[in-house]
Nucleic acid binder design. Structure first.
Length: 245
DNA sequence: TTTCCAATAT
DNA sequence: AATATTGGAA
């Protein structure tokens, strides 16, 4: 970056190895474009020619690189990132930013979080702590303490779980730390009207079944009891299952 | 203003 | 199928 709008300087920088020369002050617009150059470089589609020649093009305050027309930010999100090169950040599996070259254009690849057994376990723990009527994405997120995880992501997962529509991705076995069970209505004041919001996800049935398979007699009966609690709860305060065609 | 959440998109 | 995004409502 330079305050100086100097073509010669820019060329020199490019000779030395700069990918791009931009003028100060950097605009937000400009910043939004930068990733494309990184992506390009990574893909090795930089031709030495372009470095030396495609210079003095005045383009959105950019020097040294022509990007208008040739590279366009493509907002279409492609495919789903293959989950291979993941890195672990805290407890959340995230993917590195990914790009893909299609038709000589740089496109962003979709990156999404994978709800692993561990992540889901934390989710369920949080849900269990919060209890029926108190399960809001924001609160769940807070209790989960997973760096990088967002409220919206939790909300999406919560939706799936509420609809009993979720299962572990490929091959992972489910195992819970705590067993979150909607507590029975023990509210003595009797003012425990069903809440419109914040309902607890209903994934417990499956979990119980998995548990029972290897559970001792004692804990088995324990689970059965919990199930009955759950069932009762379901019929009293759960929203009806939406029927899909 | 912020957050929810069902519907819908990818 | 799983996760993300949207957009009206609370």
């Amino acid at each position: 970056m330079s305050v100086e709008d100097n073509a010669f300087l820019a060329m020199e920088a490019l000779e030395i190895g700069a990918l791009l020369c931009i003028e100060k002050p950097v605009t937000l617009d400009m910043l939004k474009c930068l990733w494309q150059h990184v992506a390009r470089e990574k893909k090795g589609i930089y031709k030495e020619k372009e470095r030396r020649m495609g210079t003095i093009e005045e383009n959105n305050n950019m020097r040294g690189i022509e990007f208008r027309g040739e590279i366009e930010e493509e907002h279409n999100i492609i495919g789903s990132g293959n989950m291979k090169d993941k890195i672990h950040e805290g407890k959340k599996k995230i993917s590195e930013p990914k790009y893909q070259i299609v038709n000589n254009k740089v496109k962003r690849k979709l990156v999404h979080t994978e709800w692993t057994q561990e992540l889901h376990g934390k989710f369920m723990d949080a849900v269990g702590q919060l209890g029926e009527g108190m399960c809001f994405p924001k609160e769940i997120l807070k209790l989960m303490k997973v760096p990088g995880l967002t409220r919206v992501q939790v909300a999406s997962h919560l939706q799936k779980c509420r609809n009993n529509n979720w299962q572990l991705p490929e091959g992972q076995k489910y195992q819970q730390n705590n067993v979150p069970v909607a507590s029975l209505d023990t509210d003595p004041s009797g003012q425990n009207k069903p809440r419109r919001f914040g309902s607890m996800p209903r994934l417990m049935k499956n979990s119980f079944i998995l548990h029972q398979e290897k559970a001792s007699e004692v804990s088995k009966s324990h689970f059965e009891k919990e199930i009955s609690n759950y069932v009762r709860h379901e019929t009293t305060t759960m929203a009806p299952i939406k029927n899909s065609h």
